[in-house]
Design a protein around this nucleic acid. Structure first.
Lengths: 141, 141
DNA sequence: GTCAATACTTGGAATAATTCTAATTTGCGC
DNA sequence: GCGCAAATTAGAATTATTCCAAGTATTGAC
């Protein structure tokens, strides 16, 4: 990553954190960069392992705290795909997730332009979580 | 519930279990009836508490086993809505779930006739899990 | 720039949800 | 009815997440 890009990333991260009442910390910057680096929907545990590589003293509690802050700032999405650990995804474009029940990989899938579901009167939707389960091309029998 | 209805329920449950390689047990019958009785998307813990009322010796491990069997027989759906416990729902019609982030209640929402999302070549969808987060009519500010 | 208030980080303990284990019991095909 | 595999049980173990208390760092006011 070029210096200019890094600077821009940090200033927009700082701004986003600040407007949501959070402080800018090296840990939050680092956790966010880890998520951007490899967009494979890691679990909190996996984020922790990757974050430790360049920041060996970071703790699991901090990783959870950082992920929480990033989710609340709407910089990261949290998805529940299988029984078990939550997964995190820095792609904030409208999209849904395809979960391969065989190899357990997760793929981003674009939504059609009209994903709107008719809700009964009085319900106010804030966010849609669409998970599609099935077989990916590699695992088709 | 009338006797005739109960008989029918049991024979169809038996059949469904059998064709999926499961045995018919009083515990599985009871757990299924508990889910049908109050369709409020209980957690496994809640199912356990309700099941104990008329079957005091049932254990938590059995409740998990029964729910697993029912899910594998496609008699029950398992949904992950929030961080935390999974929830169970015996409504097998195509539908999605509305989760109120304020009061934490879950509502079934009918899907439009065209819920199909264009998947990239080679992906085979087996099931869609659509969770909508927002505010229910009671909690609208 | 200094200071104070308070949010954040840390390691470890605690909790919650689920799965595993080993012994016993039960359903079901023969 | 018999025998075997599957299911049940209580409790231990594991996994994922949250809580806690002490020290540290960030931010806004001066």
């Amino acid at each position: 990553m070029k210096m200019a890009e890094k600077k821009h990333l940090n200033s927009s991260l700082l701004e986003r954190l600040a407007t949501n009442g959070f402080r800018f910390t090296p840990q939050r910057e680092h956790v966010y960069s880890v998520l951007l680096e490899k967009r494979d929907h890691p679990t909190a545990e996996e984020v922790f392992i990757r974050a430790k590589r360049r920041m060996p003293d970071i703790s699991m509690a901090t990783v959870y705290n950082c992920l929480d802050a990033l989710v609340k700032c709407r910089l990261v999405r949290q998805v529940a795909l299988e029984r078990g650990a939550a997964r995190f995804c820095p792609n904030m474009q409208e999209h849904s997730h395809f979960y391969c029940d065989s190899c357990e990989q997760v793929f981003d899938v674009n939504l059609p332009p009209e994903p709107v579901i008719g809700l009964p009167r009085g319900f106010k939707a804030e966010r849609y979580d669409i998970a599609i389960h099935g077989r990916c091309p590699e695992c088709k029998t």
